[in-house]
Design a protein around this nucleic acid. Sequence first.
DNA 1: TCCGGAAGTTAGACAAAGTCTAGATTATTG
DNA 2: CAATAATCTAGACTTTGTCTAACTTCCGGA
Lengths: 139, 139
Amino acid sequence: MKNMHYTRDNMAELLRGHDINPTHQRIEIAHALFSRQEHLSADQVMAIVNTRHSETSKATVYNTLKLFLEKRLIRELIVDPSKVFYDPNTTPHHHIYEIDSGKMSDIDADQVKITGLPPLPDNMVTEGIDLIVRIRNKN
Amino acid sequence: MKNMHYTRDNMAELLRGHDINPTHQRIEIAHALFSRQEHLSADQVMAIVNTRHSETSKATVYNTLKLFLEKRLIRELIVDPSKVFYDPNTTPHHHIYEIDSGKMSDIDADQVKITGLPPLPDNMVTEGIDLIVRIRNKN
DNA sequence: TCCGGAAGTTAGACAAAGTCTAGATTATTG
DNA sequence: CAATAATCTAGACTTTGTCTAACTTCCGGA
Ligand SMILES: [Mn+2]
Ligand SMILES: [Mn+2]
Ligand SMILES: [Zn+2]
Ligand SMILES: [Zn+2]
């Protein structure tokens, strides 16, 4: 993904690679997420996509984000009690969350070691491990 | 906390110990959480407290949970995108979340080691580290 | 090219969690 | 008891997200 140019054409490729039919709206939404490489809420995605002129409805934004999740193109972050954030980075990584500002940054998973987690029941499998470091300003 | 009897009187003590004036409603809400030692949503707390007869309003449930949080009597768990859960266990511990059932269980923090977290900016301090293992049924 | 179904998008109604306000109740103090 | 502070309340309101039914676009076969 280094030096990737997030053109609309490349977005279409990316979508096809995840079995997603690349429509205009889907390309715009993917572009909003991937060109920024930030953690965005549905509302923010909607605002970005409709900056120039209204072209994507709320229903489509939510439908599309859910589709991207299912197809594992993006990842969901549950860190703020009031809204979900979407993360174009699906490589294993963790997060630092600044409580006061809401700013979120990545921690590379390579650096971090987590040991001593208990074994799971036989019929269960790990979907993911979310590690969130909540930080705030010293007083 | 071993062998603790979660009587109303003991709840009043507990509240006073955290600088919370023990009113009837606050005692009932604390009792709901601590006698069960489970992870409950605001809705669930409300239902429990009003089982016999209606005695606590929605506003008071939310206000009281927020007060308990501020006074560090309980802990907030952000794990389900649609609602917050409240945890009477404030000792450092982690969580296993069964995505499909919504069931949540504790992992003792003693067993788990997390190393390699990056240093924080000088003026920042860690509020808490949330580690959530999301699991689901094998297919 | 025309047709018909499938896939995708949409506006707007709806649901659920949580917040807010202004008034009522309760507790405390003098 | 009266005044004041603390707490609680109903219900309106906000926000995030879901749902539905109609509309549009796409696409393969006649
Ligand atoms: Mn456009
Ligand atoms: Mn009672
Ligand atoms: Zn991330
Ligand atoms: Zn817990």
